[in-house]
Design a protein around this nucleic acid. Structure first.
Lengths: 320, 320
DNA sequence: ACCGGTTGCGCAACCGGTTGCAGAACGTTT
DNA sequence: AAACGTTCTGCAACCGGTTGCGCAACCGGT
């Protein structure tokens, strides 16, 4: 393992010059920079992150907190954040933490002290916990908005409203919305949106709350049939998938007798263009969040005003 | 942010004594240790990980490399590893990297140098890449075996063989195995196992290779019907789920006309005890791998012989 | 020839812990 | 009482980069 000192010696310059040549080449003579670079190359020099972290007083690590990995909604967010982190030369560490109980908050605090900034995906965590979290380090919330904090959310509420209006325009008179987990921020937004859209134009049944699982979808078949809905908008992809499965298992055609909106990719696999779908760009959420965080870390001087972005969510309609 | 020096000053001891009092209390007088601890407490002292990493020459970070997060097979592994890492006081950083192309190997190497050890889940990566990886740092392979390297694998091959034998015993005369992604190590094991199990006892059609996706499952319906199989063992849960969907969509009952084995949880949701299933303990893989790695890191002196564990995979049969 | 202004580089002091080594203080053995 | 062994503590040198500051060389301008 060669160190900066080795490189400096080989290039016959001082450690300081070597350091500058590698990290801020504009501060040294081009010829010198080249010599140092060549020396580094020759020795296979890899700067020690730890040492530079210590010297700079920054870890260069950011944490991404997700409530669980069992939900395919979160994983693309991770990928997106990861990609963007690489760009900003930040190390990403993923931590699974629902942020719902005090013990989890403690774990979160321990984590937080070791990193420069945090991205938190906490659909259900308590407001106060999140607020406390944000006080410690620059923080970006994903898919949730909170006064005074930066956030990146997918505007699924609007998309759900659109779906609802389209269903009604298509002649559906009884529509169901299957709500998400208890306490979900997004669920509140979506419920509001679908309610407003249906207002006086069609019968809307709000089912749930339900966990975002396949099983929950399967077992919601009863309720859906009971309320006589001919179109269903489920909170989560997995719920929708379960529901369609449950319907099929009963010999009910979907799409056909009952139509269930879902997420783009799944709609493709299920019906190839015959099913209404929305396209939530999970990776986009991740990259946007990481970008916002990187910006916040950049402008270390000024605390920077909270960023608040809503990513629009396209709706795909059969035949459109 | 108070430092060790502050603590030492408050406790009127030297930095070295303060350090020892906190990390190796047996080396100082009990009374001193208590005083230092009190001082640390009073100042809310949190030792800087970075500083101690630099001094010790160990980062205390381990990396877990997974090929993708889009596959629910990998996520429990992460959770398991995470939990076990906490126990060993190791930071876990998850990196998404299929380890298939040279560029990815370079990224991997960069990552590797920053950590104490690595857990690699690379179902498809080339042997040489993995071997090269292992040379750099203590490495544990998951779900793949390679000469000279530690590995933890789920013994799905045996489980798949059992499924096959059961199907045959149940009277199925034409059975299909839907293979996994090209180059998958596990796929080779499983193909061998099912082939041996079917040997001369029933017609076996090996389909695939196919990516481990829902869509691939849906589009494998044709092939399954074409070969006249009445029982199917799919490589991945997602493939099986897609297949069942596809069958239902065509009005073919499953279970009924065609039976598809799957993973425990899914079987539960799909048919509640009517479908043969295996139960791969993903978390178990993760914890076992992390445990093995932690051990290897502990015994830094001796390189420690490679550990090779196979976790047995239970098979659930309807009515059993 | 003299001067203010770049430009490029090196010295040395950091960042915040860890640890080998030596010495002080005290107890034990002969 | 001398010699020796423990136990505890402090000094100072690390780990490997980063950066403020000062100095020398060199620039064109007058």
């Amino acid at each position: 393992m060669s160190t900066l000192a080795d490189v400096a010696a080989l290039a016959t310059v001082s450690k300081s010059t070597a350091s500058r040549a590698l990290s801020r080449p504009d501060l040294v003579a081009p010829e010198t920079a080249a010599r140092v670079r060549a020396a580094a190359e020759q020795l296979g020099f890899v700067p020690s992150r730890v040492a530079s972290q210590l010297a700079r007083g920054r870890t260069g690590i950011v944490a991404l907190v997700v409530p669980t990995l069992d939900n395919t909604f979160f994983t693309p967010i991770i990928s997106g954040a990861q990609a963007r982190a690489d760009l900003a030369d930040l190390q990403l560490t993923v931590s699974v933490n629902p942020m719902e109980e005090p013990a989890q908050l403690r774990a979160f605090e321990r984590l937080t002290r070791q990193v420069d900034g945090v991205i938190v995906v906490a659909p259900r965590g308590a407001d106060e916990l999140l607020q406390a979290a944000g006080a410690l380090r620059p923080t970006v919330l994903v898919d949730r908005e909170l006064a005074g904090m930066s956030s990146i959310v997918a505007d699924t509420a609007t998309a759900f409203g659109t779906l609802m209006r389209r269903f009604i325009a298509d002649g559906h008179r009884s529509v169901a919305y299957i709500g998400g987990p208890e306490g979900s921020w997004q669920d509140r937004q979506r419920t509001r949106a679908v309610t407003e859209a249906a207002q006086g134009r069609a019968g809307l049944t709000v089912l749930g709350p339900a966990p975002s699982t396949f099983a929950a979808g399967v077992s919601s078949v009863e309720a859906v049939l009971a309320c006589g809905a001919t179109a269903v908008v489920p909170y989560a992809t997995s719920i929708g998938l379960g529901l369609v499965f449950g319907l099929h298992a009963r010999g009910i055609a979907s799409p056909g007798d009952v139509i269930v909106s879902t997420e783009r990719m799944v709609a493709e696999a299920l019906g190839g263009g015959t099913i209404p779908a929305i396209d939530v760009d999970g990776e986009g959420l991740g990259t946007a969040a990481m970008a916002a965080l990187a910006d916040a870390l950049e402008s270390k001087g000024a605390p920077a005003a909270p960023v608040r972005r809503r990513l629009s969510v396209p709706v795909f309609w059969p035949g459109a």
